[in-house]
Write a protein that binds this DNA or RNA. Sequence first.
DNA 1: CTGAATCCAAGCGGATACTG
DNA 2: CAGTATCCGCTTGGATTCAG
Lengths: 134, 134
Amino acid sequence: MTTRTAAQRHAEARISHQARFSDCPTNRLLDRIGEKWVALIFKELAEGGPRRYGELADAIAGASQKMLTQTLRRLERDGLLSRTVTPAVPVRVDYALTPLGQSLVPVLLAVTRWAEQNIEQIDVAREAHDAQHH
Amino acid sequence: MTTRTAAQRHAEARISHQARFSDCPTNRLLDRIGEKWVALIFKELAEGGPRRYGELADAIAGASQKMLTQTLRRLERDGLLSRTVTPAVPVRVDYALTPLGQSLVPVLLAVTRWAEQNIEQIDVAREAHDAQHH
DNA sequence: CTGAATCCAAGCGGATACTG
DNA sequence: CAGTATCCGCTTGGATTCAG
């Protein structure tokens, strides 16, 4: 039977659009840089150059060890940063932005600039909105 | 007693950094525009001008009604878009970017441009990485 | 020092049903 | 038409413990 309810057709449409969502480069990128600690990691590596794992952990003390490692590994997998292991005792691991990662820095800076210049307007709008709807 | 274990001090440090994280304008903005449907909503409103709720729902068929409404309301609360109710039967609701929202469009475009130009390099890096670690 | 593995709570986000 | 309300599974992310 080709008979389907409106709900079924709508569900199917949603599925196919979900696929397109995951394929959309913009959404894929926003998923990455929107991750909780990515902005801070980029800030550290962009401003301070290569960093050891422990240095990053200190600089980004808000992140748990698990999240920091997970995030670093995902960024490495995407080719945005490099991970260099120096076999020694104890072991030494350095992270650095790749050229691809560096090319993303200006984009992040654009985001930062807009945020710093406009965050106050957002706060004002939020207070006004909250006041109106008591 | 001022005596605290290293673990306690570390936990306290993490708490205070968590607060700073939530205050950071960049992270606050990324939290917003990183939400699942924000990029598509902005794309629709930036390219097509004001849109009725139903038109947005059709254009962004991947989003459930609940998520679409939630996201629109949060963006409205932040002053990034406006919601205009026309009392009629049936009721008509239009959404549009505010000037503040429009000022964010170029930033989103920068993200989109980088994504489209570099997503392939990310895919390549990912395949290479996955291949190496079988 | 740099992680991996496990456990668990909180919340995001989808499905469904109902409403002015 | 444009939502609201409820239920619920799954993912996210922190705490803790163990390891090379």
